[in-house]
């Protein structure tokens, strides 16, 4: 499996869909389809996220890898969309920000790692508070590119506390990478530097809640 993982990761970095699919097909086990997620897709996406963090991969490779994996999950393993989240409702949103790339990368990576994520799209603070409260969302991931959007999370947190929401907020995006204290300043519960972090943090929170 180790050799296949290296080849799969390289296929993703090369944006080589054909080889990636072949490797998935070769490792497919009809009795335990989720094995392919745990042993190939999740570690490959985590490694690529970490490579980006260390400037050894680029955003385009992270994005294309996540999208390829999401497609593979949808088409090669249609029956293997386990919902390990149980009662936990995980959602992702953009906060007053049109820059969707980070959100799509995290959304695709989480789905490819077997987590059901609801994509709330682009929302204002008020709209997001309403969604979190009405749907009793437990984990909210917020992706931003612009600093003013990041700073709005402070107001979001304030309004959520006023509504007695216990949602856990995970933030990510450029402003948080350039200022390592910013996530705490805005009142988030965790910060992800990359999609690998998002996968780890989300799985950890889900485990803690179960």
């Amino acid at each position: 499996m180790e050799d296949r993982l290296i080849k799969f990761k390289q296929a993703l970095l090369d944006v080589d869909r054909v080889t990636a699919r072949e490797l998935i097909n070769a490792g497919y086990n009809a009795h335990d389809p989720s094995q392919i997620i745990e042993q190939l897709i999740v570690p490959a996406l985590e490694d690529i996220g970490t490579l980006w963090e260390h400037a050894d991969a680029s955003l385009s490779q992270v994005y294309m890898s996540a999208r390829i994996c999401e497609d593979l999950i949808d088409t090669v393993l249609p029956s293997s969309s386990p919902n390990p989240t149980g009662q936990t409702l995980v959602a992702i949103a953009l906060l007053d920000d049109y820059h969707a790339l980070g959100k799509i990368i995290v959304y695709s990576s989480l789905r490819a790692s077997g987590i059901d994520v609801q994509d709330l799209g682009r929302m204002t603070v008020e709209e997001l508070v309403r969604q979190v409260v009405d749907q009793d969302i437990k984990i909210l991931l917020i992706s931003v590119l612009m600093l003013p959007s990041a700073l709005k999370i402070k107001e979001l947190k304030k309004q959520l506390l006023r509504e007695n929401s216990a949602v856990r907020i995970v933030v990510g995006g450029a402003p948080f990478r350039f200022d390592k204290q910013l996530w705490q300043e805005v009142g988030a519960d965790a910060m992800g530097n990359n999609s690998a972090d998002a996968i780890k943090v989300a799985h950890k929170m889900i485990t803690e809640m179960s």
Partner: peptide
Amino acid sequence: MGFPQYFTLMY
């Protein structure tokens, strides 16, 4: 066109 669409165009 937005980052995601642009990456797809590029590749």
